[in-house]
Design a protein around this nucleic acid. Structure first.
Lengths: 334, 334
DNA sequence: CTGTTAGCGCCTTCAT
DNA sequence: ATGAAGGCGCTAACAG
C-alpha cells in the first residue's frame, strides 16, 4: 500500500496525497476528504522508512537503561513510553545490565539505528565512554537519574535527599544509623546518596558506618553480619528500595523486628513498597515523571533544533514517604 | 556519512562498500579491509531507514504489553530485549494499560511503524479486535501469556498450574481455600487460572470461594472482608503475585499471621517475591524465557518466510516455588 | 571480483 | 490548489 496506489485510485497526484496527510490545510477540503476516504479504504499506512529517509528524522527515541528488573527503571520506562506515544514518537529501549561495555554497545547500536535522540542512564557520566561517543555523534540526548554539571540531566538531588533521610531518622531518635549501598564505583547515584548520608551524619555529630554490596554478591550473609555487629544499629538507610527489601528480610531472619528493633529506609519509591508488610519507608523519586520530562525536553529540542545542554537540566522534587518500616528509636538507644 | 562518501574516499564503488559489509566473502580481502578501514575513519554507519526501504525489512520487533508496572512483564520484556539484540533486532514496546482501545491503537501504531513482526499480550485473544486487525495485515506475530488454539502462543498451562497449586494446598491439609482473582472478563489468563482453581477444588471435594478484584478498585477493603468471612479461609490462591502481596498485607493488617493463620500462594514468580518476608510462595512462569522464545519463534519465521501459526505454540513448564507464605493448615482446620 | 544503475516510498521544491 | 520530478541512502540485479 503505497502513496502511489492511493494517488491513482483517488485520481490525484502523490503530492496531493502527501499534503492531505501532512499539511491538510494546503489541500482543498473536498479533495482532502476524498483522499482520506480512499486511503482508508485501501488501508494505507505511510511507510515510516521512506519517510525517515526523506526527512532525515525517524521519530524514534533510543532509551538506554541498566535493567528492567529494578522497578524504578520499569516505572520510568513506562513514563517515557507514554510521553513518547503522546508526542508521536516510538521508543527503542536497550538494557545494559550495569556493564560498561554494554553501555557503549547500546549507544553504538542506537546510533546506527538512526534514532532522533537518546535518553540514557549511565553508570557514571564523569567517565563514560558511551557518553563521549554520543557527544561526538552530536545526537541530542538527556541523562536521567544521573547528575552531572556537564550534561543535560533529569534527576533528583540525591545528596540532599539522602541527608534529608538521615535527618529524619535522627529526629526519630536514631543515633546508630548505618548505610547499605550498592557498588559505589559503579554508579554516580550511589555515590551522591552516600555523600548525602555521610554529610547528614556528620551534621548530626554521628559516626557513619557503610556496607557496600557488590552487584554479584548474594547480599544475605554480609547484610546479616552488618546488622548484627555491635553496637547494634537501630536504623539503616539503603541506597535503593530493592536493597531495603533485602535488608528487612535479613533483619527479620536475624531475629530483629522491623521497625521495633530496626528502622529501614529505602530510596526510589517503587510502587510495590506500599503493599509490603511492613510498608516501605523510602525517599521517593517521581520515576514516571522523570521519564516524561526527559521526553519533553528532547521533543522540545528536536522541535527547536537546538539539542539540550547542561543548562536544561532539571532537578525534580523528591519526597519522604513514611512507611511502617521506619519508627522511633527504642528508648534505650537514644 | 553515506555509503557514497565511503566509496569515494576508498576509491571503490558503492556496491563494493555495501558488499564489504553485507557479504564480506564476495569482496577480495584486501579491498574489504581497505573499505572497512576507511569506513571506520569516517565513522560510517549504514542508514537503517534507507536499508529498510530497500530491503523491506526493518529488523524491528513490536511488543505490546499491558504494563511495565507489573514485574512479570518487565522481566519478560527484558528477555525479549536481550534475545532481540542477540538476533540483531531492535524492539519497540508499547503499553496498553489493559485497555482494549489501547491494544488496537498500539497495533495500528506498530503496523504503521513498519515493524517486521509483533509480540503481544492481549486481554483476550478470543475477542480481540487488535488481533483481527493484525491477522488482516498478515504480519507475523506471536502471543505471549495468552493461550488460544487459533493463535501462536508462548505461555504456560495456566489451568494445570492453578489446579496443581490447589492440590499442593490440599496436601498441606487446607480445606477452606479461597481464590483472589483480577477481573475475570478482562483476561484469559485470569479465567484459565480460575478454571484450574475450580477444577482442583472440585477434584478435592471442596467448595470454591472466589473474590474478583476490579483493576481500579483499592483492594484493601474487599480483601479484608473476604479474608475475615466465616468460616475463615486457611489459604488463598491469588491469580498473580501482586495480588498475593496485597493479600498478605490485608491478612496481617487483619490480625492474621501469614502463614500460621493463612497461607498465601501467588502466580507469576516475580523475582522480588523471594526477597519478601515472608517470602512468596508462588507458581512460577519462566518470564524471561517466555520472552526469549517468542523472539526465537519470530526470527525463525522471518528467516523461513512462513509466519508462525497456532501449531507453533509452545507451552513452557511452570513450577511451584515454595516460600514462607505457605504452610500446613492449622490442626483444628483440617 | 567490481562497477553501473534502477528503484524502494516519501517529501518538497518548483512550475503551472 | 495541484502536479511533476529529484533525490534521501541503500541493495540487488545485471554487466563487464
Amino acid at each position: 500500500m503505497s502513496i502511489q496506489s492511493v494517488a491513482k485510485k483517488a485520481g490525484v497526484s502523490v503530492a496531493t496525497v502527501s499534503r492531505a496527510f501532512n499539511f491538510p490545510d494546503k489541500v482543498v477540503p473536498a479533495t482532502r476528504e476524498h483522499v482520506h476516504r480512499v486511503a482508508n479504504e485501501l488501508g494505507y499506512q505511510p511507510n515510516a522508512s521512506a519517510r525517515s529517509l526523506r526527512t532525515q528524522r525517524t521519530r524514534v527515541l533510543g532509551v538506554v537503561l541498566p535493567t528492567l528488573l529494578n522497578p524504578v527503571f520499569a516505572e520510568c520506562l513506562q513514563g517515557i513510553a507514554r510521553a513518547a506515544v503522546a508526542g508521536g514518537y516510538a521508543i527503542t529501549p536497550v538494557t545494559t545490565g550495569y556493564v560498561l561495555d554494554e553501555e557503549e554497545r547500546a549507544v553504538r547500536q542506537l546510533l546506527a539505528g538512526n534514532v532522533d535522540a537518546l535518553i540514557l542512564v549511565v553508570s557514571n557520566p564523569a567517565a563514560s565512554v558511551a557518553l563521549q561517543r554520543l557527544r561526538a555523534a552530536g545526537l541530542p540526548y538527556v541523562l536521567i537519574y544521573n547528575r552531572h554539571p556537564d550534561h543535560p540531566c533529569v534527576s533528583v538531588d540525591n545528596e540532599a535527599a539522602a541527608s534529608g533521610a538521615v535527618m529524619r531518622l535522627v529526629s526519630l531518635g536514631h543515633r546508630r544509623i548505618g548505610m547499605v549501598s550498592g557498588t559505589l564505583a559503579a554508579s554516580d547515584r550511589a555515590q551522591q546518596r552516600h555523600r548525602g548520608f555521610v554529610r547528614g551524619m556528620k551534621a548530626a555529630g554521628l559516626k557513619a558506618r557503610t556496607l557496600e554490596i557488590p552487584f554479584v554478591e548474594d547480599a544475605a550473609a554480609s547484610l546479616a553480619r552488618f546488622l548484627s555487629a555491635t553496637p547494634r544499629l537501630t536504623a539503616v538507610f539503603c541506597s535503593n528500595d530493592l536493597l531495603a527489601v533485602r535488608c528487612i528480610r535479613a533483619a527479620q531472619r536475624g531475629g530483629q523486628n522491623v521497625p521495633r528493633d530496626l528502622s529501614v529506609v529505602g530510596f526510589d519509591g517503587i510502587a510495590i513498597g506500599e503493599d509490603l508488610t511492613p510498608s516501605l519507608s523510602t525517599v521517593t523519586q517521581p520515576n514516571s515523571e522523570i521519564g516524561r520530562q526527559s521526553v519533553e525536553l528532547l521533543l522540545r529540542a528536536l522541535d527547536s533544533g537546538s539539542p539540550p545542554d547542561a543548562a536544561a537540566s532539571r532537578v525534580l522534587p523528591h519526597a519522604f514517604r513514611a512507611g511502617e518500616s521506619c519508627a522511633g528509636a527504642p528508648p534505650e538507644a537514644r
